[in-house]
Simulated scan of single mutants.
Amino acid sequence: MSTKAVTDATFASEVLGSDKPVLVDFWADWCGPCKMIAPALEEISEELADKLTIAKMDIMENTGVPGEIGVQSIPLLVLFKDGKPVAQKLGAAPKSQLKGWIESVL
């Protein structure tokens, strides 16, 4: 299963209401580091599909949730478990570091 797009309208049901952890990648089309980590997140999404869902939210098209959460810099990865943010990572990193961080906070 690859990453899935979430919006302000679908965030509550698809992220907060999910029965498994959801990692949300807050990104924008103009963000170079966001584009750098996108392929790694797609691969990690496939590799860890049984453990979590990776969702992507474009902060330019969806301003409500990023505003509520306080997103000030991107890329910002926020892990939600049981409807609550439990960990976050700011900035780009190589796939091995991203995957290691995700596995450490799951």
Rank of each mutant, 00 (worst) to 15 (best):
T3N: 05
L98N: 08
D50M: 12
K51M: 14
I44H: 04
T10A: 03
G32M: 10
V86Y: 03
F80D: 03
W30P: 14
P21D: 14
L79V: 11
M1H: 13
G67V: 11
T63V: 15
Q72Y: 05
P85N: 06
E46R: 11
A38D: 02
G83Y: 00
D58T: 01
T53P: 02
D19I: 02
T7R: 13
K99S: 14
L106G: 03
L41F: 01
V65R: 10
A93Q: 01
K84V: 14
E61T: 10
I59M: 08
T3P: 02
G91M: 03
L23W: 00
D19F: 06
L106Q: 06
M36Y: 03
C34V: 06
C31W: 01
L48D: 03
K81C: 12
E43G: 09
P94I: 08
I37L: 00
G67A: 10
P33L: 12
D19R: 08
D58I: 00
K20I: 14
D82Y: 07
V71N: 03
T53G: 06
L77K: 09
L16W: 00
L52M: 13
K95Q: 10
D82N: 15
I74D: 01
D25V: 06
P39I: 07
K20A: 15
V71F: 01
K51E: 15
E14M: 12
K51I: 10
F80M: 04
E42R: 02
D8I: 09
T63K: 14
L41R: 04
P85I: 08
L90Y: 00
Q88R: 02
S2A: 13
A9F: 06
E47N: 10
C34Y: 01
S73Q: 07
V6N: 03
A40Y: 02
K35A: 13
L23S: 04
D58Q: 05
D8C: 11
E14A: 15
A9W: 02
G70H: 05
K95P: 07
I54Q: 14
E68G: 04
V71H: 00
D25K: 02
L23A: 06
I37S: 01
S96K: 07
P66V: 11
E103K: 05
Q97F: 09
V71L: 06
P33K: 09
P85T: 09
L79A: 10
D50L: 13
A92F: 00
K56V: 12
W101E: 12
F80P: 02
I69V: 15
L79F: 04
A38V: 05
A38R: 04
A87Q: 03
T7W: 04
D50E: 15
V6I: 10
L90F: 02
L52H: 03
A93F: 01
L98M: 11
G64W: 07
M1N: 14
G100M: 07
I44S: 05
K95V: 09
K95E: 08
V86I: 11
V78N: 03
K95G: 08
I54F: 14
V65A: 13
G91N: 00
K89Q: 13
K84Y: 02
T7Q: 11
A28I: 11
D58K: 01
D50K: 13
